[in-house]
Amino acid sequence: MSLNPNAPRPKMEARELTLRYGTKAAIQKVSLAILDRRVTALIGPSGCGKSTFLRALNRMNDLIPGANHTGTILLDDMDIHDRSVDVVDLRRRVGMVFQKSNPFPKSIFENVAYGLRVGGMKDKSALEQRVEKSLRGSALWDEVKDRLHESALGLSGGQQQRLCIARAMAVEPQVLLMDEPASALDPIATAKIEELIHELKATYTIAIVTHNMQQAARVSDRTAFFYMGELVECGATEQIFTNPREKRTEDYVTGKFG
């Protein structure tokens, strides 16, 4: 399969990654590839380390005192913990959407423009173009185009989350990490987010953490099952849900525990 020229190459790859908070290991020796322009779902019961793994990919764990790691994470064959890598630069290439929508108490426009402004973009028309492009990309443009300069806090929960996705996309990252992006939303808003993920994978490499089995089955190409800090199994989503190799995976995806 590796000889097939159309096979997607890994965009990001963790090798023997162990991450500890203090001395307590949150994930143990995880080796996992996130394929280019594919959606990879990370599933598993609470506390299994899937969010920790996701946050490791753009080094958000650096912010937690006492967090330390062994092993390597590659982004396009570059070690993201290498001393030559600027973490600010890394986060511009690997964007993140959080579980709880967290727009800034600023206008809709300023929320989306934030990443561009801190990156040094000043030209007004360029900013406007990118904001519009991102809002269209997150299917929010038609709903907000007439009130771009009103507070983002006036949007509904689902709109706020799509705004956060637009905000992350505005800096044009190559990878989007999503940490349970729809867990706080109603079914209709969730459906919109899922539809959006489908469209985004043409341009972005996506890793999504979810608690929702159906969601993982619906949106992802590949699924990785985490349990107790270990990667139990990773494969094509269809295979994981219909024909898992491991007993624990089967038990989890069929709802016998977790």
Partner: peptide
């Protein structure tokens, strides 16, 4: 909220930019 700080950092802002803008 801590969320605002993490959101800003995740967008590639430095700590001083996060302080000054958020």
């Amino acid at each position: 909220p801590m969320d605002h700080r993490t959101a800003s950092l995740a967008l590639g802002a430095t700590q001083s930019q996060t302080l000054g803008r958020v």
